[in-house]
Design a protein around this nucleic acid. Structure first.
Length: 426
RNA sequence: GGAGAGGUGGCUGAGUGGUCGAAAGCGGCGGUCUUGAAAACCGUUGAACCGUAAGGUUCCCAGGGUUCGAAUCCCUGCCUCUCCGCCA
């Protein structure tokens, strides 16, 4: 959520900034609502002040043993007036808030302009795609020929966009997960954290998935009304919801491994083959809660932490900066890491690292105590995948494949694989 | 699942329907003392909104209601704790 004060005081600037990402605000409507709100709020508060002072007077008169009947007479109509004003104010505030909750974040000035994915500039590249002297297979063929990856059975059990893995392939996914968690906790200073996979609507509003993107989520039925997390970002960032964190406890760095659940509504026909886009996938997520002045340095740092994993796995990748037309709703700036997939002969997203500045923090009232002012202020939140485990598995399979269809185990994972260095059919 | 108790400021914890945004303690901050620290003592210390300010409004889990007036009474929901039952 943007700062309502900014919208009130500098609507033109906000409008111009949001236009960069192709979002338009109905400024006339917003201003008229705002004018009306101000008016009604002032009137409501005035009525409340009157009620308070009169009630106090009645209390005193009663204590003094005076006759309060005439005083009661005087306040007779006040209650109704106050109720009407209060209801109108509540309605206006609800409308204004709904508008505000639907406005995306302002892109940082360093975010390049552009219309969509194709305009994202490449920032840097690491590694060279290997030259294979045989015809490469994609992970689907590799996995099925090994007899370790099965989409048909998954379709029977659940439906499309699920998979079943077994044996060393399932273990390879676990090895990737363990390795990522160990690296981030041991080398990068993150605290491992275990969180619920089902969350309430308040948490999703806090990080920005609700109210606008409900169709992307799975929800439980019945009275409980939970949502399955689309990313660990939701429960982990919401640790700070409604909290005031002391300055010496910052920055907070968390790493969590969770499954993620996405309905993938609107992605019909996209990535229907394989496990690139599943309803359920594993992800190791990095989340940082930092002082506002530190957030851009933290974004670079966190992106580097995710890159370390790709480098140690020796997977070629590139870093792109999302342009104004491609950046997510809540983000002020985002880098995507894209790993090379020989099976597709292209780079594919494997991590998305974003600085949300105070956008999420304002929605969830996640604050810190600024020692310079002694006052609470909004935190900045940053997160990124470190990495998407399912896609990392795909990348390992495709980049480490051999001519006979077997898959070498990356050196860094071999300890986690109990000595298995090649995954062969069987 | 059954029965009961309860949700108050960073924490613990008082609070009779009317000067209660809320006692007290702890913690934090500032100071006195000290070479320094501790202890002791003194002072200070919730958040949001409107306003240049004075000041005003709101918030005692959430949402409704009663009342001139609600932290306090009533209803609903959520959460926590205790006992019993069941259980990965």
């Amino acid at each position: 959520m943007l700062d309502p004060k900014l919208l009130r005081n500098d609507l033109e600037h906000v409008t111009a900034q949001l236009a960069r990402r192709g979002f338009t605000i109905d400024t006339a409507e917003l201003q008229s609502l705002e004018t009306r709100r101000k008016e009604i709020q002032a009137r409501t508060q005035q009525l409340q002040a009157e009620r308070n002072s009169r009630s106090k007077g009645i209390g005193k008169a009663k204590a003094a043993g005076e006759d309060i009947a005439p005083l009661l007479q005087e306040v007779a109509g006040l209650g109704d007036q106050l109720k009407a004003a209060g209801e109108e104010l509540a309605g206006l505030q609800f409308t204004l808030n709904s508008i505000l909750m639907g406005i995306p974040n302002i892109p940082h000035e360093s975010v390049p302009g552009g219309k969509g994915e194709e305009d994202n500039p490449e920032i840097r590249r690491w590694g060279e795609p290997a030259d294979f002297d045989f015809e490469v297979k994609d992970h689907v063929d590799l996995g099925e020929q090994l007899g370790l990856l099965d989409f048909q059975t998954a379709a029977k059990i659940s439906g499309s966009r699920f998979c079943v893995m077994q044996g060393p392939l399932a273990r390879l996914q676990r090895a990737l997960t363990q390795y990522m968690l160990d690296t981030h906790t041991r080398d990068h200073g993150y605290t491992e954290i275990y969180v619920p996979y089902l969350v309430n609507a308040d948490s999703l509003r806090g990080t920005g998935q609700l109210p606008k993107f409900e169709e992307d989520l799975f929800a439980t039925g019945g009275e409980s009304g939970y949502y399955l997390i689309p990313t660990a970002e939701v429960p982990v960032t919401n640790l700070a919801r409604g909290e005031i964190i002391e300055a010496d406890a910052l920055p907070r760095r968390y790493v969590a491994h969770t499954p993620c659940f996405r309905s993938e509504a609107g992605s019909y026909g996209k990535d229907t083959r394989g496990m690139i886009r599943q309803h359920q996938f594993e992800k190791v997520e990095l989340v940082q809660l930092v002082r506002p002045e530190d957030s851009y340095a933290a974004l670079e740092q966190l992106t580097g932490h995710a890159e370390t994993i790709l480098q140690q796995l020796e997977l070629p990748y590139r870093v792109v900066a999302l342009c104004t037309g491609d950046i997510g709703f809540s983000a002020a700036k985002t880098y995507d890491l894209e790993v090379w997939l020989p099976g597709q002969q292209r780079y594919r997203e494997i991590s998305s690292c974003s600085n949300f500045e105070d956008f999420q923090a304002r929605r969830m009232q996640a604050r810190w105590r600024n020692p310079e002012t002694g006052k609470p202020g909004l935190l900045h939140t940053i997160n990124g995948s470190g990495l998407a485990v399912g896609r990392a598995l795909v990348a390992v399979m495709e980049n480490y494949q051999q001519t006979d269809g077997s898959i070498r185990v990356p050196a860094i994972l071999q300890d986690y694989m109990g000595g298995i260095d090649v995954i062969r059919p069987g």
